[in-house]
Design a protein around this nucleic acid. Sequence first.
RNA 1: AGAGAGAUGGCAGAGUGGUCGAUUGCGGCGGUCUUGAAAACCGUUGACUGUUAAAGGUCCGGGGGUUCGAAUCCCUCUCUCUCUGCCA
Length: 424
Amino acid sequence: MLQIAVLREQTEQIIAGLRKKNYNNAAAEVAAILDLDQSRRTLQASHDEVQARANALAREIGGLMKTGNKAGAEQLKAETAELKNKAKQYSEELTALEENLQAALVKLPNTPHASVPPGRTPEENEVLLEHGDIPVLPANAQPHWELIKKYDIIDFELGNKITGAGFPVYKNKGARLQRALINFFLEEAAQAGYIEVQPPILVNEASGYGTGQLPDKEGQMYHATADNYYLVPTAEVPITNMYRDEIIPREQLPIRNAGYTPCFRREAGSWGADVRGLNRLHQFDKVEIVQIQEPEKSYEALEEMSLHIQGLLQKLELPYRVLRLCGGDMSFTSALTYDMEVYSAAQKRWLEVSSCSNFETYQANRLKLRYKGENGKTQLLHTLNGSALALPRIVAALLENNQTPDGIKLPAVLHSYCGFEMIN
RNA sequence: AGAGAGAUGGCAGAGUGGUCGAUUGCGGCGGUCUUGAAAACCGUUGACUGUUAAAGGUCCGGGGGUUCGAAUCCCUCUCUCUCUGCCA
């Protein structure tokens, strides 16, 4: 959520930012919000004035009662009746106004960083770099959804039987590969200084709200209605919410956490082309890295996270590229996002395997996640996170790019984690 | 799941209708003492809102009510703990 004070002070910059994100009607909505804010403050002042008078009277009455001056007390009581009505009326109006203001404010997305290119579609994302050679596969090369059947390592039909579409069963070396990748990613994160956490994978409403899944994207999460818990769509949600409503001592910054969770996404309305096999699932595994940083250092942290993720892809010997997302392709909450994509040689296209973002104060404002700066003032922190990494498309690329007549040759870095070198 | 108890500032823990935003201890910060540190002693130390700065207002789990006045009384919701039951 954008800060109302910033909206007041930097109105033009924010409108320009919202436009870059292709947010329609930005100027009008911002004007309406500032209008509401002005009314709110005026009303608040009136309310406070009445309240102050009522407080003073109550104190006087207390004094009179003590001295036994009942008549005097009764006289003052008469005056309070009117004040009470007024205060109640003001406070009701105020509540309504605040609700409207809040509702309008949460609808505004985060504003993009200056480096974010304009654009509406994924085609307009900026390719920052490409790394590694695109492998040349033999003519009879197969996509991963054929390979998993050939080697009987991932079974979609069995998942259909147990649960439904998008819930595959990993079997034999397929299951062991999952476990190996999770361990590899966690181990690399630990060596890079991220403290490992194992959070709950069901979260309450307040947590969903804190990271921005609620109230708008409710339909994207699985909801355990009996207890009103939500299945996490990413470890970002529980990990970031560990710091909700906290004022972090400055010397504890930056906070760096890594965690593995399964991720659950309903993906309502997003099924169509290019979602075969492992490309899109309702349940998948992911290791997430999270940083909480001082505002001045958050972009340094983003670069560092990007390099960490790239290091993983290099060790996995996968050809990848890094994109800087354009305004229109970024998430609602992000100020700057790098996407990492690996090349799938059999599908002949790039697959997104990581998304690494700086949210600046947008999440922190909702989370009330703050620290005391050098000047002693309490201020909002910056939150960042990135996938390091999401498994399914990594598995897809590993299978497709490394297929040989003898089987799938796994990259050397995974051998000790897997306990085998080939899938055959 | 049943019965009971509870929710107060970073933590512990007082406060059961009238200067209570809240006693006290610990912790934190500043100082005295010391070559330095520890100890001891002194001082200081919540958040939000508002303003050029104040004043003022709000916050004792959430919501509602009683009252001139609520941390304190009533209703309700949520959560936590203890015991019993079940169970990895």
